[in-house]
């Protein structure tokens, strides 16, 4: 019998989740946030994760990104089985293997756009010049070269999201997780950002899960996965 990590490694899946259950204990009650969820994302696939509030989207995304451990089940990211990881191992995993773009706070307010990218290098084993070159290249690709020295407060909403995307790509991740990336943007800007996400992911062959309420995003995704009451709706 092959392990999940071996399976993900041989099949080239960016993410393979099997029978994921997450139960929260609230006082004496148990709340089942995820109930035996299976999800596989190919190495260059963009998946839109759609569902109503409280359906378990963010919990699923958090487990895939190593922010949360499942109560039961297995998770492998790029062949790396993480469900048994300690807190310290998960921290290292998040730093090295995944990228995050969160719904609200995405940038460090006292760092410039360029420094917000370089912080990824600063919190791990430093690559120095290589990291600086990569940050400059990402800023150029994202059309932010002239904004590199600006603090987040000096950037528009769309520019902030682009910097966040650049930060998420700094560590060359196998999987990028986007949590409601357009919720704070108007429809035109939201459309631009989603197209940018698609272009960047496809150009790099990087897998992505986009948690969203926004139906327009699903058009840019390779596949849409619906989740309801903690279960994947087929």
């Amino acid at each position: 019998m092959t392990t999940l990590a071996e399976s993900a490694s041989t099949t080239g899946h960016a993410l393979e989740m099997r029978a994921i259950t997450k139960i929260y204990r609230v006082a004496d009650d148990e709340v089942v946030a995820l109930d035996h969820v299976d999800l596989t994302v190919a190495s260059d696939e963009i998946v839109a994760l759609v569902g109503p509030s409280g359906s378990g989207k963010t919990t699923l995304c958090s487990i895939a990104g190593g922010l949360l451990s499942p109560t039961n089940g297995s998770v492998a990211v790029a062949g790396q089985e993480i469900s048994g990881y300690s807190g310290r191992q998960l921290t290292e995993f998040r730093r090295a293997s995944v990228g995050f773009v969160f719904q609200t706070v995405n940038l460090i307010p006292f760092l410039t756009a360029r420094e917000n990218l370089l912080v990824v290098d600063e919190i791990g084993p430093r690559l120095g010049r290589v990291a600086r070159d990569r940050a400059d290249q990402l800023l150029e690709e994202l059309g932010l070269t002239d904004r590199a020295s600006n603090l987040p407060a000096q950037l528009s909403g769309g520019q902030k999201q682009r910097v966040a995307i650049g930060r998420a790509l700094m560590n060359d991740p196998s999987l990028v997780l986007f949590d409601e990336p357009t919720s704070a943007l108007d429809s035109s800007l939201g459309d631009q950002v989603v197209r940018l996400i698609r272009d960047e992911m496809k150009a790099r062959g990087t897998a992505a899960i986009i948690v969203t309420h926004d139906d327009r995003i699903t058009h840019y995704a390779d596949r849409t996965v619906n989740i309801e009451d903690g279960r994947i709706a087929e």
């Binding site: 922010l67 921290t91 730093r95 006292f110």
Partner: peptide, 17 residues
């Protein structure tokens, strides 16, 4: 700066750092 510190922890900064 709690939000910024939380973001740093989320993207892989060790609490010790």
């Amino acid at each position: 700066k709690a939000a910024a510190l939380t973001l740093l922890r989320a993207i892989g900064a060790r609490s010790g750092a």
